[in-house]
Write a protein that binds this DNA or RNA. Structure first.
Length: 752
RNA sequence: GGGCGCUUAGCUCAGUUGGUUAGAGCGUCGCAUUUACACUGCGAAGGUCUGAGGUUCGAGCCCUCAAGCGCCCACCA
């Protein structure tokens, strides 16, 4: 049944706003209403979250279509750069292969082919769920015209001075060999150790070796952290022999270029500006005062490794410190770590350094320490902060516009709670690293100038040209030979442009007609990743907001409120549920129970309940239709009984309520009202009453009146239920004896 | 360290600006009917709305505090 109905809709062309019929009053549909679908990953099998998204958006679209709007629901697919590449890498690993065996072009082609294989999966799944989106406007994030727009935006950002490239500390995932944005790093509590190391003050030419002795070295002031105690290990006659630092990562000390203390810390005042000698490396480093240092923590003095810690990097910038990378991208110590340690994996280097420090008397003590560690959100490997050349967007100017728009209500969050979260994040936003060292994505349109044609060296990347094609000559340096940047954009950089990029590349006039779009409906988990960026980039690129309203739905959890994940094995395949109970039942179950802006536990019982409802609808319709053969409401002057008047009044009220609730995104209330009315007022009372009057009519007029009531209430109920349960309502509508339109999907929303 | 949210029937949750006897789905119990529909109908049991205090003629809803649970953000070495 469902396939047949979907085909009927598709063939009618009613998913396409250009093909929608005129309104019942003969007027054109003038009011545009557009939702851009959050594009599912192109290689992905849909999960219940997608089913919820599809249901909510389809409800809105179908409701607005019935209201007479020119509705466009624009579907698409996302290449999902890093996500997809990770999936593909896993597949390679299973086959005993590795991404690093392939050159760039081969790997890209392999992933491309892989995605093509799965391309139609999601699309067919969406159809099974009843999504009334316009497939003729389907877009893919790697379509050439989309890529062109992404390039245009990048160029504009460059021209406006909002893009910079430079060595910055980034979150490096050693497994995936790419930098990640701050949002892609998750934090886990780990049991670790805190090592206390002393760095001799340089004035003492030959610091006397001190043997490792915790009882002597670890002073009570360090353990207790008392603010008023004297500085750790103050030397004889009030001078310092050394300064003591605490660290969880002793191996990074090889790259230390300073020791920092709080500017407010009186204990160390004398030392600021002096120099310390870095143990093991015998390198002199400076002692600086920086407000990033908490005087209460540890010894109040911190070793500064600009190359391997984000905070230290910033301290380094403020004090012009040198940045020495002692850990490489391969998780091993570099040559800069010194001959003794170069080439060692991090863990071994750490072990050896602690041993050496202890042997040489620099290790004061070690203590267990619990703290949070950044890990890759995909593989869980500890993130290695590294300094690397990356591309950044200066985000503050973009953020300011977005913050203002939301504050003024230009862009309205349906749930105020998400607006708060949004504003809080925007207020603390940091520059956005948009380059990724992966191949699956949109390659940066950057061409580095080669100094001389015969040179293949590309480490002098000081001059480059922004162009989507290989440039002929650099206008700045005159170079004629170039090498293209190998980095690709963060997927969200292109996704952030999705609302305008899609509408600018579909039919002519679409952008003018449908932008800004009406609603952005998506899961709250991508508020920062996506919604915030769309608002920022929409304003930046088009001067307009990308959408007027934001509705964020919750996560679907399992019946024990646990997050669904493949590893837990509690993932529900929506299509299996559809096969078992029908798409209508699943859709209704997803919106019926709870407000969909908070997380929803999923339970198959809920679907079964709605399957029963569908059955009830079916049977009520069967009864009604069998008693309405040849019925025509025209030229009937019904004489209503008290019961008739009551049900018509109730019908008016439920129409009013459902309309109001759909206008305010109260999907569950709208669903419950329609459900309750249909079952307990129409079926239980009205049909029972009408049944008798048709079987044993008191008069011919009473019989036609009863038929009229049946026809009217059933017809309007179908319209009310259609956004939620489109298949069964359309199937019944097609059997109705008297209908004004070709299909229910383009009927007129009932008036109270 | 900051911020947000939740706590209502056995379970999952509604309850829109404070206004009679606090609702739904599922589950439980009793009765009825072979019916458009047993994927049914009628009815019943089941709640000191987390706790304490306050505002009010009136509080599940507003305010304060407390407890439990959950989530988000953050540069604690």
């Amino acid at each position: 049944m469902e396939d047949r109905i979907y085909k009927l809709w598709e063939e009618s062309g009613f998913f396409n706003p250009d093909n929608l019929p005129k309104l019942a009053n003969g007027k054109e549909r003038t009011k545009p209403y557009c939702i851009i679908m959050p594009p599912p990953n192109a290689n992905e099998v849909l999960h219940l979250g997608h089913a919820l998204m599809t249901t909510l958006e389809d409800i809105l679209i179908r409701y607005r279509r019935l209201q007479g709007d020119a509705t466009l629901w624009l579907p698409g697919a996302d290449h999902a750069g890093f996500e997809t590449q990770v999936v593909f890498e896993k597949k390679l690993e299973k086959e005993g292969r590795s991404r690093f065996q392939f050159d760039r072009e081969t790997l890209y082609q392999m992933i491309w082919d892989y995605v093509q294989e799965n391309k139609d999966v999601a699309r067919n799944q969406l159809k099974r769920l009843g999504a009334s989106c316009d497939w003729s406007r389907n877009k893919f994030t790697l379509d050439k015209d989309i890529v062109r727009i992404v390039y245009q935006t990048f160029e504009k950002l460059c021209k406006d001075g909002l893009i910079y490239r430079g060595p910055r500390i980034i979150n490096w995932c050693p497994k995936h060999q790419t930098g990640l944005s701050d949002l892609e790093v998750k934090y886990e509590d780990r049991e670790d150790k805190l090592w206390y190391i002393k760095y001799p003050i340089v004035e003492l030419k030959n610091p006397p070796p001190v043997s490792f002795d915790a009882s002597r070295g670890g002073q009570s002031s360090l353990r207790g952290g008392s603010k008023n105690s004297s500085p750790p290990l103050g030397g004889v006659r009030g001078d310092f022999d050394y300064i003591e630092v605490a660290t969880t990562r002793p191996e990074t000390m090889l790259g230390d270029t300073a020791v920092a203390v709080s500017p407010k810390d009186k204990r160390y005042k004398k030392l600021v500006g002096q120099r310390a000698l870095l143990p093991l490396m015998n390198r002199e480093i400076s002692i600086v005062a920086d407000s990033a240092v908490e005087m209460e923590f540890g010894t109040g003095a911190v070793k500064v490794t600009p190359a391997h810690d984000a905070t230290d990097f910033e301290i380094g910038q403020r004090h012009n410190l040198e940045s020495i990378s002692v850990i490489g991208r391969n998780d091993k110590m570099t040559a800069a770590a010194g001959a003794v340690y170069a080439g060692l994996p991090i863990a071994e280097a750490r072990k050896k350094i602690v041993e050496d420090l202890e042997a040489q008397g620099f290790l004061m003590k070690e203590e267990p320490y619990r703290h949070s560690v950044g890990v890759c959100y995909k593989c869980g490997r500890v993130i290695e902060p590294l300094v690397s050349e990356q591309w950044f967007v200066k985000i503050k100017p973009l953020a300011e516009r977005a913050v203002k728009a939301v504050k003024k209500g230009e862009v309205k969050f349906i749930s105020a709670k998400y607006e708060k979260i949004f504003q809080h994040w925007m207020a603390n936003i940091r520059d956005w690293n948009i380059s990724r060292q992966i191949v699956w994505g949109i390659r940066l349109p950057v061409w580095y100038c080669l100094a001389s044609p015969d040179s293949t060296q590309q480490d002098e990347k000081s001059c480059y040209v922004i162009s989507d094609q290989k440039p002929k000559k650099c206008p700045k340096c005159g170079a004629t030979e170039f090498v293209q940047e190998t980095d690709t954009f963060d997927t969200w950089f292109s996704s952030g442009q999705w609302p305008f990029a899609t509408l600018q590349t579909t039919n002519a006039g679409d952008f003018e007609k449908f932008y800004p779009t009406a609603v952005m409906e998506t899961g709250w988990d991508i508020l920062f990743f996506w919604v915030a960026r769309m608002i920022m980039m929409g304003f930046y690129a088009t001067g307009q907001k990308p959408f007027s309203q934001v509705y964020m739905h919750g996560l679907i959890r399992d019946k024990d409120k646990k997050k669904m994940s493949k590893s837990k094995g509690n993932v529900v395949n929506p299509l299996a549920v559809v096969d078992e109970n029908g798409a209508d039942a699943l859709r209704m179950a997803l919106v019926f129970n709870a407000a969909s802006d908070s997380d929803l536990p999923f339970n198959e019982d809920k679907v079964v309940a709605q399957k029963r409802f569908a059955n009830k609808i079916w049977n009520a319709a069967r009864f009604s239709l069998s008693n309405l053969a040849g019925f025509n409401p025209e030229n009937i002057k019904p004489k209503f009984t008290a019961a008739d008047k009551q049900i018509l009044k109730d019908l008016g009220e439920v129409i009013k309520k459902v309309t109001k609730d759909l206008d305010s995104f109260n999907f569950h209330e709208a669903a419950q009202s329609a459900y309750h009315f249909f079952w307990h007022q129409f079926c239980d009372k009205c049909i029972e009453d009408v049944k008798k009057r048709i079987k044993e009519p008191r008069s011919e007029l009473d019989k036609t009146t009863a038929q009229y009531v049946l026809w009217k209430v059933l017809g309007d109920s179908l319209k009310l239920l259609h956004p939620f349960m489109p298949f069964i309502t359309e199937a019944i509508y097609q059997e109705m004896p008297y209908k004004l339109h070709q299909a229910l999907i383009v009927e007129t929303w009932p008036a109270e």
